[in-house]
Design a protein around this nucleic acid. Structure first.
Lengths: 181, 181
DNA sequence: TATTGTTATACTCTATAACTATA
DNA sequence: TATAGTTATAGAGTATAACAATA
């Protein structure tokens, strides 16, 4: 704790500063995620008329369809209510097909329609370009290092950070809230 | 773009997958930031009765006071309305002192009260511990590498990602929206 | 005429719970 | 009695604009 990166004894004005917000990792992650989210929201919305949650649903259906609502929820880290609404929207737009699961009629079976697949193919280059903007100037090796460090931070988050919210533990299993990328 | 980390030709089921959401950097940043934000919100709120925006204000006042409202806004990446409300709340709780700027009477001059400073000192260990949970198992060298890679991603975000939102350009100058750490 | 800061309004999102249908 | 999914409602948070005071 004493050599944490965001800690310093004094700032440029000579006053004591126990914690510099701008160097504190939680702030830095939050800042980047927020800027990216705003950019994504803007482009998805104005160019394709879809929300970021809807984009997440499209992605996991392209990867894993057919999926149930709950399957989509766990793959996207969204809760089931959010999924229902995003799917309703996508269904109205004829981008997603929903049918009853033959084996368990409580479940819905979700997959992309042909139109949905075309939209997915159309958005992908933009999504990859945005990632590319984020990683611009980083070598292949540096990207691997960043990726592996993020994996470890991710594991730490799952293991200890998320555990700081005890009563939400059950809710947490079905998902994450708020601004998404 | 062809060697972007989140791209793959096929997934485990042999189906084509153009983009894996779980490996896509925007999603990964968003996931981590969200979990951390939920944890922070919970602890700040239940233990000290303050919001995350209020914590940000406290931090920058501890570092840079006295600051104007606009100064706080630019240091915290919040907009002025958010700052006004967070400061109102902190002022009601006697954690922040506000007086008129002697030189420019449009401005307010904000700083922490003695109580505010005590609260800041009290929260810091928790804030650092959370950062520590995030970075657990990373060596000093690895933390430096992560820090430096985040700086470069941050710069890329400022330079190109944020520019994807043209009309918001002016709003952007005063701040960020949504879930904060 | 521009800037700082505040307030009001409408809107969006989210949490929560109630509910249906099926297992 | 538990699970999958849907819908309704209330509350929180946010964007936006209008506003006052000062420069």
């Amino acid at each position: 704790m004493t050599n944490s990166v965001s800690v310093t004894k004094t700032n440029e004005s000579g006053r004591e500063a126990k914690l510099q917000l701008h160097r504190w990792f939680p702030y830095r992650f939050s800042w980047i995620a927020n800027e990216v989210s705003i950019s994504l929201h803007h482009v998805y919305h104005t160019r394709w008329g879809i929300s970021v949650p809807a984009w997440r649903v499209i992605c996991v259906l392209a990867e894993f369809a057919p999926l149930s609502g709950k399957g989509v929820a766990s793959e996207t880290a969204m809760d089931v209510v959010q999924v229902t609404r995003a799917v309703n929207d996508l269904h109205r737009k004829r981008l997603v097909l929903r049918k009853e699961d033959a084996l368990d009629r409580r479940k819905v079976s979700l997959e992309l329609s042909a139109t949905g697949k075309r939209l997915y193919e159309e958005v992908i280059p933009y999504a990859l370009q945005l990632e590319e903007q984020l990683l611009d100037g980083l070598s292949g090796r540096e990207r691997e290092v960043l990726s592996s460090l993020l994996d470890r931070v991710h594991e730490n988050t799952v293991r200890s950070v998320s555990g700081n919210v005890p009563e939400a533990a059950k809710r947490k299993r079905t998902g994450m809230r708020r601004r998404l990328s």
